[in-house]
């Protein structure tokens, strides 16, 4: 008997190729968003474990995705970091946001990024009006001497950012 089902016709063949093309193009279009977005995707931890070389392009992409083309306000956030850090394992930094902590005027999220680290994002801080002042001190790791960037996203949609350069003598492994 002649089975027609198992035969690969020309129509089936072209459909197969077209479907593949569709899937690939969609993945490529989403890829740029996935890598640069500050939120972790499923493979972030995998990439972090095996990619040891820092990628400055990705840091720039993350900063661009946070700011999203908005105007950067000046004198909004103050970052305090040492000029020279002897040990890269513990670099004490602190920041404070210059605002009245009311419903319309408080920082929703503050990001801290070190550009030359292999995984540039370090911490995110979420504030509420109940926390009377948006100022935090924390200790971070730095691999090489590089810029620290602090970005504050306010509740009314404006953005403020500062950066300061830190010279590291003995780098950390991070």
């Amino acid at each position: 008997m002649y089975l027609k089902k198992n035969i690969l016709t020309r129509r089936k063949f072209f459909n197969f190729i077209l479907g593949f093309a569709c899937v690939f193009s969609s993945k490529l279009s989403f890829a740029e968003k996935q890598i640069g977005s500050p939120f972790r995707d499923r493979f972030q931890s995998y990439r972090q474990t095996f990619r040891i070389e820092p990628d400055p392009e990705e840091a720039k992409r993350i900063v661009r995705n946070i700011i999203k083309g908005r105007e950067i306000r000046e004198d909004l956030i103050y970052l305090k970091a040492p000029d020279i850090a002897e040990n890269g394992n513990t670099v004490p930094i602190s920041f404070s946001v210059n605002c009245s902590m009311e419903e319309q005027d408080y920082p929703k999220i503050v990001h801290i990024l070190v550009l030359d680290n292999p995984f540039p994002e370090i911490a995110r801080f979420y504030f509420t009006p109940e926390s009377g002042e948006a100022s935090v001190a924390i200790r971070i790791r730095m691999r090489t001497s590089s810029n620290i960037i602090a970005i504050a996203e306010m509740s009314d949609g404006t953005v403020g950012a500062t950066k300061s350069f830190v010279d590291v003598t003995i780098g950390a492994c991070s």
Binding site: Q48, N89, T90, V91, V114, N117, F119, P120, E121, I122, A123, R124, F125, Y126, V136, I138, R139, I140, R141, A172, S174
Partner: peptide, 9 residues
């Protein structure tokens, strides 16, 4: 609230 990543000491 604060989210930390591997860069914290």
């Amino acid at each position: 609230k604060s989210h930390w990543f591997s860069g914290v000491s």
